[in-house]
Structure formats: structure tokens, C-alpha cells
Computed example of a mutant assay.
Amino acid sequence: MIELVIDQRRRDLGGFEVGRVLPFHARRMVGPFIFLDHMGPATFQAGFPRSVDVRPHPHIGLSTVSYLFEGSMTHRDSVGSTEVIRPGEVNWMTAGKGITHSERFEDLRAHGGTMNGIQAWVALPDEAEETDPAFAHHGPDDLPTYEGGGMWARLIAGKAFGAEAKVKTHSPMFYVHWALEVGATAALPAEYPERAAYVAQGIVEIDGRQLHEGQMAVFAPGETVTVTAVTGAIVMLLGGEPVGPRLIEWNFVASTKERLEQAKADWRAGRMKLPDADDQEFIPLPPDPPGPAPAMS
């Protein structure tokens, strides 16, 4: 039932640690999900430096999905959006043919507090790779919930368990937040060919194996997966239909090397518009990595 267990790799992004789960060398994607970072958990004192913020940077060929358990974050982008995301809400940004955005921790800087959440990237299918960029913010009323048997669940995006979130997606997928009490058991049906569960908090047992915070289990297709909470736990379920192999380099996702190179050239030359409300600085393109071109995912 479990094909692979992935341990998060902790990375310091300039005063703020994240746990990177996807992409992984042995499993680059799960359904359309090509990137998953666990932001924090990290506690900040009021007045921490602006260097912790994520300055304006570009994307192509993907949608970014931000979802918080604790804290807040201000999003600004080049299509004119400014939105503060808080726990239980969804920021869904579609890069398509190109977008730039920043993520600032202004409320946390003013008041202090904890940041804890998930940032995921969803690769766009071939027909949507060059779609117009867009941004959507969704509050809890757009996200179906369920409660019973020691489990609380929220459908963040896609379709699952007979429900559908009011978040526009571009390919068949699901993304779910489970909160499980000690001893609670819940089942993930074999609805999609590619599925995974990331343990964001606590310990669960799956297929006779215990998984702890920071681990992702990737499942074989065709079987219902049973999850039992050994402790109180938060589990993120994700997956869907594969969209085909993708290249990923820096903040860009594409189905061809030529498109990646064009995006890099555009950013290097200043041809990608910065957010109107945050255009005084940006993250420069890093040097090309040594060795062969990035592998297809």
C-alpha cells in the first residue's frame, strides 16, 4: 500500500526554516503536485527583520497554493492582487505564461507569533501552461468540511469524498486537511491513481507503519488507505491525475527546456512585470546549476 516514505529536508531560507518534501529524487510528483514545503512551525518575536520576507520573484507553468495552520502572510502580485491569508483560507495563484509575486510577514512583524503552513505548487496541464495569470482568495465558506468519528476534514481544492471546493483547478486533483483525535481512524479511497499523505503534526499509523511529523507516504494505486492517529494529528492528503513529465528549475515549471530558458531570459532582462504594490526590490536569477539540465519530473 505504501510505495515510498519521504522525509522532509529542512532548509533555512534566510531566517525562516521550511521542510521541503517535493520534489524528491525518487518521486518528483504526486498527481499534479510538483512542490511541497512545510513553512515552519516557527515562532517570531515582534520586530524581526524584513530579510525573512520573500521578495518579488517570478513563476511560469504552475499554480501556487498557500494554506496556513497558524500565522498570516501578505501576498502581492503583478496582476494587482494584495491579500492577507490567514488560517483556514486558500490563496491560489495561477502563473500560467508568467506572474511575479511577493510574500511578506507584516502582521507577524508587528505583533509576533507563530507561522505554520503549507506551500504547494501544482503543475498546469499542457493546454493551460500558457494561460493568463490569475489570483483567487478563498475563505472557509468556499471549502467543504466534515466532522465525525474523531475526525475533522476540510477540502482545500479539487474533488474528494463526494464534495468539491470552490477553487478553480486545471486538472483532476484533490487536496485535503485532516485533523484526527487520538485513536481516530479515517480512510482515503482509491479515487485517483496518484495519492499521498503528509503528516504535518503528530504520529499516525498506515499499513502497519508509524509515520511522524515531517514524513510523506506515497501510496500504490487501487487500494483504500486506512489512517489511524497514534497521537492527535494533522494530515494533508494530496494527489490526482498525472499531467505528464515536467521540468523544474528555480521558480519555473515547464514541459520543455526551451520554455524554461525563455523564462530565465525574460526575468534576467527585466521583461516580467513586478507587483505594483511591491516593486522596489526583487530576487535575482541564481546562476545556472552545474552539470546536465534538470531532469524531467
Rank of each mutant, 00 (worst) to 15 (best):
T145F: 01
V182A: 04
T185E: 08
F174W: 10
A153H: 07
W152Y: 13
K166R: 15
A186C: 08
K168N: 11
G149R: 05
V167Y: 09
H177W: 02
T185K: 11
Y175R: 13
L155D: 09
A184Y: 02
A165E: 10
Y175P: 14
A179Y: 07
T145M: 06
A187C: 06
W152D: 01
R154Y: 04
A179W: 03
A160V: 04
T169E: 02
Y175I: 09
W152L: 10
E164Y: 14
E164G: 13
G162F: 00
S171F: 10
E181H: 03
Y146T: 13
A157V: 11
A179P: 00
A153S: 15
A160K: 08
G149P: 03
S171D: 01
G158E: 09
K168Y: 14
E181C: 02
F174Q: 06
R154I: 12
A153I: 06
V176K: 05
H177A: 03
A160C: 14
W178H: 09
G148Y: 00
G148T: 04
P144Q: 07
A160D: 09
A160N: 04
G148D: 04
E164T: 15
M151C: 13
A184C: 07
G148I: 00
Y146L: 04
Y175C: 11
K168L: 09
T145L: 01
H177S: 08
P144A: 02
L155P: 14
G149M: 05
A153K: 11
V167K: 15
I156A: 08
G149D: 03
K159A: 13
G183R: 06
G148W: 00
V182L: 13
G148A: 02
A165N: 10
A186E: 08
K166L: 01
R154C: 07
E164P: 11
V167H: 09
K166V: 05
E181R: 14
L155Q: 11
P172W: 07
E181I: 03
G162P: 01
V182F: 09
Y175S: 13
P144L: 05
G162H: 08
A186M: 15
T185R: 11
T145V: 13
T169F: 04
R154K: 15
K168R: 14
Y146D: 00
K166N: 15
A186Y: 08
A184I: 01
I156R: 11
A160H: 06
A160I: 12
V167F: 11
T185W: 08
G149A: 02
P172F: 00
A186D: 05
K168W: 01
P144I: 14
I156Q: 15
K159D: 07
G158Y: 06
A153E: 03
K166M: 12
P172N: 01
P144M: 05
V167S: 05
G149F: 08
T169G: 06
T145C: 02
L155S: 13
E181V: 04
A160R: 11
M173C: 12
K159C: 10
A163M: 13
V167I: 09
M173T: 08
F161W: 10
G158V: 09
S171T: 03
E147C: 12
L155G: 11
V182D: 10
W178R: 05
